[in-house]
């Protein structure tokens, strides 16, 4: 019979205390849009459902100079309706607007989307491209994990049993560069991505000064494409170079075949989306 328990603390401290006591017996619920289906499909065994959706102190979007901090329970809708995100961190807004559907966006949280560690998580590529770090806390301890080091495999993360994501931070130096997010799904809403790409690009005197690219659904984890980035740095962008860079992308991605697409198609599309992102951003720059 049901051995699930439920608790909805009102403060972060309470959550951390409970996590310390319960460790892997606790399952953090933020929006609930992933956890409830997992419960239903018996993917999660009976546990303590630790509902953090009511913790106001974790719901914030802050910008201090060039430092951004977003609280873990900030919902995807919050991102969309945030003027400052729209105006100064549009890449995240683009991803949020293509996330699931309007109803799910009202509940799903940024922390939850990352903690779920799906290769198809829509907020992961833009945050990877932003070089984001995660504020991770346990009782009396706080540490930062770079997002690129956070994902270990499908639904596997670097989080310890007693830890939770409390916030996401990144610096906005990268935001002086335009960014874009492109998603290819099989329909226009409620689509689990076939491939996504997020990119920030800085061009100086026609050369790639800085570039950061990340992709979703092309590997067991949301993937930062360091090789492709390195390849392009300091080079003049032209069609031939882009074609060459696509080959780097093909080398770096490692998609699977599933019900939505074959590995070959995903691989091919990753090149296409990569190219499109580059084209879009260079057009915007010029």
């Amino acid at each position: 019979m049901s051995q699930f328990r439920y608790i909805s603390p009102k403060t972060k401290e309470e959550v951390l205390k409970i996590l310390e006591e319960e460790k892997s017996e606790a399952c953090i619920v933020a929006g609930g849009s992933n956890v409830l289906p997992y419960i239903r499909d018996k993917i999660i065994p009976p546990k303590l459902l630790l509902d953090i959706s009511g913790i106001e102190e974790l719901n914030y979007i802050k910008k201090n100079g060039s430092n951004w901090r977003i609280g873990a329970t900030t919902t995807i809708s919050d991102l969309i309706s945030s003027k400052i995100i729209r105006e100064e961190c549009n890449i995240l807004c683009q991803a949020a607007e293509q996330f699931a559907d309007p109803l799910v966006r009202n509940k799903a949280t940024i922390g939850g989307n990352l903690a779920d560690a799906s290769p198809a998580a829509d907020t992961a590529p833009p945050l990877l491209a932003l070089d984001a770090g995660l504020e991770v806390e346990s009782k009396g301890k706080k540490r930062e994990i770079f997002l690129k080091d956070f994902f270990l495999g499908p639904r596997k993360t670097a989080l310890q049993d007693d830890e939770m994501i409390t916030g996401i931070n990144f610096k906005s130096d990268s935001l002086n560069k335009p960014g874009c997010f492109i998603k290819l799904g099989l329909r226009q809403a409620m689509a689990i991505s076939v491939v996504t790409v997020a990119m920030v690009l800085e061009i100086e005197e026609n050369r790639v000064k800085d570039i950061r690219v990340a992709m979703g659904s092309v590997a067991p984890i949301p993937l930062r494409l360091f090789n492709a980035e390195e390849f392009l740095k300091n080079k003049h962008l032209n069609d031939d170079l882009i074609e060459e860079a696509k080959n780097k992308v093909y080398e770096e991605v490692n998609p699977i075949s599933d019900i939505r697409a074959s590995a070959e198609y995903r691989c091919y599309i990753s090149g296409i989306l990569f190219k499109r992102a580059l084209e879009k951003l260079t057009n915007q720059t010029s």
Binding site: G32, V35, L36, L49, D51, L103, V104, K107
Partner: peptide, 15 residues
């Protein structure tokens, strides 16, 4: 005030 899908919302979250 926000439209949500009640099947993926815990009852407790409506408390």
């Amino acid at each position: 005030g926000k439209a949500i899908k009640s099947c993926i919302t815990l009852a407790g979250q409506a408390n």
